[in-house]
Amino acid sequence: MSPERRVLVHADKETLAAAVAARFVRKVRDLIEEFDEATVVLTGGSMGIAALAAINSSPDRDSIDWSRVNVWWGDERWLPKADDERNEKQAREALLDHVPLDPRRVHAFPSSDEGLDLDAAARSYADELVAAAPRNASLPHFDITFLGMGPDGHIASLFPGHPGIRVTEETVIAVRNSPKPPPERLSLTLPVINSSARVWAVVAGSDKASALGLTLADASIDEVPAAGVEGRRRTLFFVDGDAAAEVPENLIDPGQFWTGADE
């Protein structure tokens, strides 16, 4: 495992979500102080949303200047805008609707009831990425990209055995025949995810233990897409004890020597 990839184990899901929230608040505050803005990519799933809810309930939540935060998503379910299963809606209910974000900085994926077909929606989000990129760049500068991980090792909507995990020429793909409902989705591609300065994977539950072990053993990305994740500066796996069952002890970071520069 690369020295830039670390595993931080927490006792249970609640402690895990609170630890992610505390680190997020601290890091985003520092990024805004240094660069005048911070750009984050959100994920769905139970732990992704739990982390956002923990940020919302953090006593330090309002120490962030939320008007300087840019928000994107790593993937989305191809559903109507108001559908309870959309990652966007869940994120808004957990956090985004409770903080004073600038609506112009919130970049949700198109929904199935906005007049676009799935392929056009993928192109639309790809165009939005280009439009938000700094001069001479093809993507925005992502500071933190959140990921969940399925029991099969999938990340975003990049699934084992599906061609999407090997796409490199596109930034956003239309996903069909997803093994997990709904069958149609939109997803950033692996190179876009890995363009982020920091990738934070939040993983909990004994059903994730095998996939996490294979991820850290550098399994084939065709079999375990999460094995291909590597942020430009840091890749952190925030996990609970159940998910860490198959992680070798030498890969678990004790956390005691961490500094702000490590984040």
Rank of each mutant, 00 (worst) to 15 (best):
V175H: 02
D36G: 06
D262W: 01
G255N: 03
A50F: 07
F142G: 11
R26W: 00
L42R: 14
A11N: 12
G228F: 02
L16V: 03
L188W: 00
Q256T: 13
A137V: 10
P3R: 02
T235A: 00
V40F: 01
M47P: 01
A82H: 12
H98L: 07
A227L: 00
V69A: 12
I193V: 12
A201M: 14
E263S: 10
F257Y: 02
R86M: 09
R135E: 15
A120P: 03
A11I: 05
R68H: 11
A11Q: 14
I193P: 00
A38K: 09
W78N: 01
F35V: 03
G213Y: 04
V9L: 07
A174F: 00
E76M: 08
A211M: 10
V224E: 02
V167M: 10
S138Y: 06
R29G: 08
P3D: 04
A243D: 07
G148Y: 07
I221Y: 06
E85M: 02
A50D: 09
P140E: 11
V202T: 06
R26Q: 11
A18V: 02
D30Q: 13
W73F: 14
G231V: 04
S187D: 10
P163F: 08
A38G: 13
E93M: 13
P103A: 03
R6T: 12
P254N: 13
E85I: 00
V25Q: 14
A121T: 06
S2C: 01
D75H: 01
G213C: 09
D119C: 12
R86Q: 07
L95V: 08
N177L: 09
S111V: 14
D113T: 11
G150I: 10
L251D: 03
D83P: 08
A21K: 02
G148M: 10
D143Q: 10
V202F: 04
L186N: 03
P3N: 03
M149C: 02
P248W: 01
V20P: 08
P151A: 05
L251Q: 10
V247S: 09
A120V: 12
V199M: 07
K13P: 06
V20C: 14
L8S: 06
K27T: 09
G150K: 07
D152L: 07
W72V: 08
V172S: 06
N177I: 09
N70W: 13
T215G: 02
E85C: 02
V106N: 09
M47Q: 12
L16I: 03
R68Y: 04
A19V: 03
V25I: 15
L129F: 12
A244R: 00
A21N: 03
E249L: 15
K208I: 08
D207G: 15
A245G: 12
A244L: 00
S196D: 07
S46K: 15
D240G: 12
